[in-house]
Design a protein around this nucleic acid. Structure first.
Lengths: 208, 208
DNA sequence: TGTACATCAGTGAACGCGCGTTCACTGATGTAC
DNA sequence: TGTACATCAGTGAACGCGCGTTCACTGATGTAC
C-alpha cells in the first residue's frame, strides 16, 4: 500500500517490466480487497510506485488491465490442475485430484475465484471462450473419456459429465466463499461426501 | 426509469406505502441492472417518482435499503420452496422438487440470486443468520431426516447431506448465471444428471 | 361550520468524495556525428 | 572522447462525473377551538 518511494525509470526496451509489475500489483490488491471495484487505477499506481497516468502507457483502460489479471489467474488454475493430474493413478483418481485441487485453489484465492467464476463479466467475449480452451476444463473432459473407455465410468456424454463435475466442485467452492460464516461441515468431509457421491453416480449405469 | 411524474403525497399514517414502493422499485432496478452497485439512491427515487432525500425518511442508508430488498427476496425463495414441497409424495420426491424449484428460482431471478448467494455481504451479520432460519434450508434438513427415518436415505449426518444438496443445486444455478455463454447442456438433462446422482449416492450406504 | 395552528412527508440545492481518464510537460536514456 | 539531439517512460495538474448524504425549507394534511 505504501511503496510511495519513487520508482527508478525503466531502460529503453524494458517497458514490459513495469507492465508485469502492474499486473502483479493489481492481482495482489484484488486478493486483498476482494473486490474488483475496490481496485482503482490510483491504488495500483501507488502500489507500484508510479503515478496513475503511467498505467495508461501499458493498458488502454482499466477493463483491459483486469482482463490481464484474469488471464494470469486462469493460467495459475491451469497449472494447479495439471500438477494435480500428473500424480494420478487412473482416470477416476485424476478426476478426484483435479476436483480437490480446484476447490482448494478457489478457497486459497477467494477474491480471484470471485472474478473468474462468480463475477459479472459484462462483455461475453473474454472468459467464456477462454474457459473452453482452459486445460482445467478440457482436462476433465479428457479424463472422463478415458474413464469411459476403461469402463470405470458408465458410457454417456462426456461433456455432460464434465459439466456436472464442474458444477459440483464450483458449488462447494463458491458457496463457502460467499457465505464464510455459515456453519460448514469440515471441508474434507464435505468434499468426500459430495465428490464421492458424484463418482458413485458416474460409475452406476444410469438413474435410480 | 421515467416515471418522472410527481407523486401524490401520502396520507398521515401511510408512510409505509412509500416504503414498500421504494423496496419494490429497488428490487426491480436490481433485477434490471443485475448489479447492486448499479442501483443508486437517485435511481430508486426517480423510479418511485420522488426526490432522493425522501428515501432517507424511510431508510437510514443505502445498505439498510438493500437489506430490505434481500429480506423480501429470501421470503420469496421460502415461498417457492414451500410450494414445491407441498405437492411431494415422499421425502425423496420433496428433495427433488425443492432442488428444482431452487434452481429455477435462481435462473428466473439471476440478479437477486446474485446478491443473495453470490455477493460479498460484507457485514457477516445479516444473511448468514437469516440463512439458517430460512425454511428453504431448514426444510431440506427436515426432509433429509424424514428420508432417513423412512429408510430411503442411508443413515448419516442430515446437516452434511443438506449442505451437499444445497452445494449441488447452487453449483448449477450460480455457474449458469455467471457464465451464460458457456455451451451448457439442456437444463433438464443437467438437473437430471446432477440431482439424480445425488439421490443415488444418498441412498447408497457409503462410498465406492 | 370556520379559522388558526401543529405536524411531518417530501423538496431543492448543495456538500465532499473518489473515480477513470486526458493533456501538455519533463528529463533520463540512448544515438549520431 | 565529447557534444547536440531525438526518443519516450513517466509526471503533475486538472477535467467531468455520479455517487451517498445533509440541511434548511415548504406546503398539504389533519386537529383544536
Amino acid at each position: 500500500m505504501t511503496t510511495s518511494q519513487r520508482r527508478r525509470r525503466a531502460r529503453r526496451g524494458d517497458g514490459d517490466l513495469l507492465r508485469d509489475e502492474i499486473v502483479a500489483a493489481a492481482s495482489r490488491l484484488l486478493a486483498e480487497t476482494g473486490d474488483e471495484e475496490a481496485v482503482s487505477i490510483r491504488g495500483v499506481a501507488q502500489a507500484v510506485g508510479v503515478t496513475p497516468p503511467s498505467i495508461y502507457l501499458h493498458f488502454p483502460d482499466k477493463t483491459t488491465l483486469m482482463f490481464a489479471v484474469c488471464e494470469e489467474r486462469f493460467a495459475a488454475l491451469d497449472r494447479v490442475s495439471r500438477e494435480a493430474a500428473a500424480t494420478a493413478s487412473d482416470p477416476l483418481d485424476e478426476l478426484r485430484r483435479r476436483g480437490e485441487a480446484y476447490i482448494r485453489f478457489g478457497l486459497d484465492n477467494p477474491a480471484h475465484y470471485r472474478i473468474l467464476f462468480m463475477g459479472r463479466a459484462e462483455p461475453p467475449s473474454y472468459d467464456e471462450t477462454r474457459l473452453r480452451d482452459a486445460s482445467a476444463f478440457g482436462g476433465v473432459v479428457d479424463a472422463v473419456e478415458r474413464g469411459m473407455e476403461a469402463g470405470m465410468i458408465a458410457a454417456g456424454d462426456p461433456h455432460l459429465a464434465a459439466v456436472g463435475l464442474w458444477a459440483t466442485v464450483h458449488g462447494i467452492t463458491s458457496l463457502m466463499i460467499a457465505k464464510p460464516h455459515f456453519p460448514w461441515p469440515p471441508l474434507d468431509a464435505l468434499i468426500d461426501h459430495v465428490l464421492c457421491a458424484r463418482f458413485v453416480a458416474l460409475a452406476a449405469p444410469s438413474r435410480p
